[in-house]
């Protein structure tokens, strides 16, 4: 079977299209690359959706945590502590069983127990908490002069937030936020290893990699391929966020521009 044929059969396997049965014996390198790559679709889906939705909640949380109103501050602080203080892995388990017990009395929660929605909600809340903390840190390090200048120009409320505070916050937070993005994409691999079932063997990249490792009892082929895909993904993220960083810093003289520094990516 040629490699083109394999790609046609298994390229969209993780979405349930193409060949139904996974290869059982005599795995070729092409099958490894195709199936694991096909699983990356899920990692990218979870990552992008969580980042996009989480961004808005994170901004709200940062504003809430920086607020002087106790009724806004305390809930934000607790939310951030709850999701940053516990392992994502346990959060996945808890959420799955929580949705499972909701499903019985209320059938409308049916789709929450499948990964595409349930796991996405957990990732969304989790990344919102982490990014919220990053944004809060940036919010506190906005130069005092910037806000005073905005006051002097007669800006207040929404226009001050939209034109001064928010862009500056983003600019300061962007390098750390890039790390957070890399994080989120990496933690998407946990989804199918916690309680969420991979229905009809439609899993993510790590799911297929461990499928191969289990079948061949040889970890030295599938995991390096997975690593290759993730390093590629990380490079794309760094490039994309670097472009945005350039845009955010475009008004600054060259030597004051914040250099993008990528520190280590930790698990959570």
């Amino acid at each position: 079977m040629s490699c083109v044929q394999t790609i046609q059969d298994y390229g969209l396997r993780s979405l349930g299209l193409g060949e139904r049965l996974l290869p059982k014996t005599d795995f070729t390198l092409c099958e490894h690359f195709t199936l694991i790559g096909s699983g990356m679709i899920w990692n990218i889906y979870f990552g992008i959706m969580a980042m996009v939705t989480g961004f808005f909640l994170a901004t709200a949380l940062a504003m809430g945590k920086a607020s002087s109103n106790k009724w806004l501050r305390k809930p934000s602080e607790w939310f951030i502590f709850l999701f940053r203080g516990s392992p994502l892995f346990i959060q996945f388990f808890f959420a799955y069983f929580f949705f499972l017990s909701l499903k019985k009395p209320y059938p409308m929660f049916d789709s929450f127990t499948s990964a595409w929605l349930g796991a996405l909600i957990v990732l969304f809340l989790n990344t919102a908490a982490y990014s919220g903390e990053i944004f809060y840190g940036a919010l506190r390090s906005i130069p005092k002069g910037d806000i005073e200048a905005a006051d002097a120009y007669g800006m207040s409320g929404w226009s001050r937030f939209q034109r001064i505070i928010w862009p500056t916050m983003l600019r300061l937070a962007w390098p750390a936020y890039t790390n957070e993005a890399i994080f989120v994409f990496q933690s998407t691999t946990l989804v199918f290893f916690s309680a969420f079932p991979a229905w009809q063997q439609r899993g993510d990249a790590l799911y297929y990699a461990s499928y191969f490792a289990d079948k061949t009892f040889n970890p030295f082929v599938p995991y390096p391929i997975l690593a290759f895909y993730f390093i590629l993904l990380t490079l794309v993220i760094v490039w994309g966020f670097g472009m945005v960083n350039k845009h955010l810093n475009r008004h600054l003289p060259a030597e004051r521009k914040a250099k993008m520094r990528f520190r280590l990516n930790l698990a959570r």
């Binding site: 691999t189 461990s210 009892f217 690593a227 990516n265 698990a267």
Partner: peptide
Amino acid sequence: RGVPDIAFFLFFVI
């Protein structure tokens, strides 16, 4: 860096 740590865990054990 750049590779999910869970992949490392699964890899190293075998």
